[in-house]
Design a protein around this nucleic acid. Sequence first.
DNA 1: CGAATAGTGTCTATAAGACATTATACT
DNA 2: AGTATAATGTCTTATAGACACTATTCG
Lengths: 244, 244
Amino acid sequence: MSDELWEPPSVLVAVDLVILTLRSAKLHVLLVERGIAPYEGDQALPGGFLNNVSEDILTAAHRELREEAGLDASRLHLEQLGAYGAPSRDPRGRVVSVAYLAIAPGLPEPIAGTDAASACWRPVEDVTSGQLRLAFDHEQILTDGVERARTKIEHSALATAFCDETFTISDLQQVYETVWGVRLDSRNFYRKVQAARGFITPAGSNRRRSTKGRPAQLFRRGPRTVLHPPLVRPDPPTRNERTE
Amino acid sequence: MSDELWEPPSVLVAVDLVILTLRSAKLHVLLVERGIAPYEGDQALPGGFLNNVSEDILTAAHRELREEAGLDASRLHLEQLGAYGAPSRDPRGRVVSVAYLAIAPGLPEPIAGTDAASACWRPVEDVTSGQLRLAFDHEQILTDGVERARTKIEHSALATAFCDETFTISDLQQVYETVWGVRLDSRNFYRKVQAARGFITPAGSNRRRSTKGRPAQLFRRGPRTVLHPPLVRPDPPTRNERTE
DNA sequence: CGAATAGTGTCTATAAGACATTATACT
DNA sequence: AGTATAATGTCTTATAGACACTATTCG
């Protein structure tokens, strides 16, 4: 290309975070209320611009995770979703946003003592149903993030990131059922989870005492991040098919 | 975050293309020789900065595909790989590059009549073996692009993008073997490809006359993009396992 | 005891891998 | 013929899904 006398355009770079968690058997996403224009007062994904020209993008994502969500970045799974840079996505000018996916264990309350007092967990369904609208192209980013999570837990141990340090197999099944939005047979789930070597390891002889029923064995994440064999998501009516 | 009196840093946005093809049973990538500093004279992925502040990123990728590779973007698969934005990746200053993966059918010659006379196909292996070094972080981008292609052809009909309009099942097997770097049993491959409904459809009663042997039935891409059941890549010694 | 959850076992259909055999071109 | 590639078929094993059954807690 000819670079003579021509200057490439400068743009602003932002990061946006899709932070997913499980609360009362539903998939929730962390949203903040925008305090300034544009979209003032609307709900949006946590995020913000790079701090300075030498800040790494992933570092910025970790910083926003801390500042806006009050979450300790060090123990969280963080994965890049991609770049979102439609020219019209931000009315202030050209902004390219790099989106990240983060998975957090079920946290009871909106998170206190942070910059973002306005932050709160909202059911993902409220957004996908169109009931709750998000600022910018954040609905698209959220959709992509959820879809990424759905496919990743098939082949990776990512699902354990939704759980606490120790968890039962039922807890894990809850994760899969909620993220995929399906019901699974617990007996087959047991077999498959145990067959995936290195996925989970028994946590001593501890057992969890629930309200009723037989106490469950506790587990923690195993050393393996890639599942073999994988936990394949059952055909949700239209995941494929019917194009012929 | 506090936006008062503070200006977010401006950065340059570029696109880089990993354009893969098959030439003589080897995976090749399109590289250009850099004509200006930095990395002048080195090999690099085709790419460049956004033309202007209102150019869409995907549009820029298509434009570079045309300008630097002379490829008609309209019939090519183009998929975003992600954003690469390490602060030190470009010595000229802060540049965030959005990388795209493109798959092209086997084209015989380096592509003529384009801006980029310096463009040429190089075996991917030359790069991954360390024999050929690339500018910037392009080795990483290339590695990510190849890995993406490897996993995508398991579940999608992307492999047909490496083929011409019509192709034989052997051609398709060649694609899988080359991209995955393994040998497959042709008889099992036949069965599985045919079992994936909507993957390929017979192209009339045409047959290809090769140099020797029985002529093969010709096919073209089917209507389905998602493969069901998928074509799973065999365990390459260390794709998983051995972490225990 | 009954209710509820945890965990094991069994059967069947489907898909994967190994490998034999037939079919149709070329020289 | 002989050779080379295309295509179909068979057998065995592994995995997925459906579902019966046993185990252990609480009230």
